[in-house]
Design a protein around this nucleic acid. Structure first.
Length: 213
DNA sequence: CTCCCGATAT
DNA sequence: ATATCAGGAG
């Protein structure tokens, strides 16, 4: 299938209609909690992250409080999210930096966010979009896979796909579109066994006839 | 590219 | 048993 501009618009329209009312799956009460939750979510289900953050934030919900915990305690607290040594080290270093350089507040700036240890482009985009309501498309594993399968945006790297999605989707819908693609990836267009029979986009999908990828 | 890494789905 | 899960750093 040749995916024209017209077809991309149809894909976007169906995604919007189908996932109109979805909201972020990670639980948080402020930008700082979202930042920690997103760092923890690497290679981990959001469900598991929510269990862990509920417990963690009950003990410590500010950069100052987490610094006070100490590294060993933090490692134990987040162990079941996986990659816990790296995540604990990064969270601790980020909290120290937030206290020292940012007055204990999460900076509302894409470049500044990426200076925090453990915060790359994807995490910075999520914080800008979800916490601060700036237009952004965070390309995680789901968005990357779904965009490439649909050929809504094709690319070898997350950055290439991000650029492609920005071209294909009106700016005012970037942040919502990010959530549409995530939920579609979780519910239908799953990595292992995509449910093409139940997919509302099957008629406008390039990956279906190509046998996915 | 490799490593980090426990929990979960299939 | 194994692929995968809201990735990032070296």
């Amino acid at each position: 299938m040749r995916v024209t501009r017209k077809i991309k618009e149809q894909q976007i329209a169906i995604l919007e209609e189908t996932y109109r009312d979805v909201k972020p799956a990670l639980m948080f009460r402020n930008p700082f909690e979202l930042l920690i939750a997103v760092i923890l979510s690497a290679q981990c289900t959001d469900k598991r992250v929510n269990v862990t953050t509920a417990r963690l934030f009950a003990r410590a919900s500010t950069p100052e409080a987490i610094v006070s915990m100490g590294l060993q305690d933090l490692e134990e607290e987040i162990r079941d999210c996986g990659l816990f040594r790296n995540k604990a080290k990064n969270i601790m270093a980020s909290c120290q930096l937030l206290c020292e350089k940012y007055g204990g507040e999460v900076p509302e700036d894409f470049a500044e966010l990426q200076k925090l240890p453990g915060v790359g482009r994807k995490t910075a985009n999520v914080v800008m979009s979800v916490a601060f309501h700036h237009p952004a498309i965070a390309v995680d594993t789901h968005v990357f896979r779904v965009a490439n399968r649909l050929k809504l945006a094709v690319g070898e790297t997350p950055l290439e796909v991000e650029r492609g999605l920005q071209k294909a989707i009106p700016k005012e819908k970037w942040s919502e579109a990010h959530h549409w693609l995530i939920w579609h990836g979780r519910r239908i267009c799953k990595s292992r066994r995509p449910l093409c029979e139940e997919c509302p986009l099957s008629e406008v999908c390039a990956g279906k006839e190509a046998g996915v990828s």
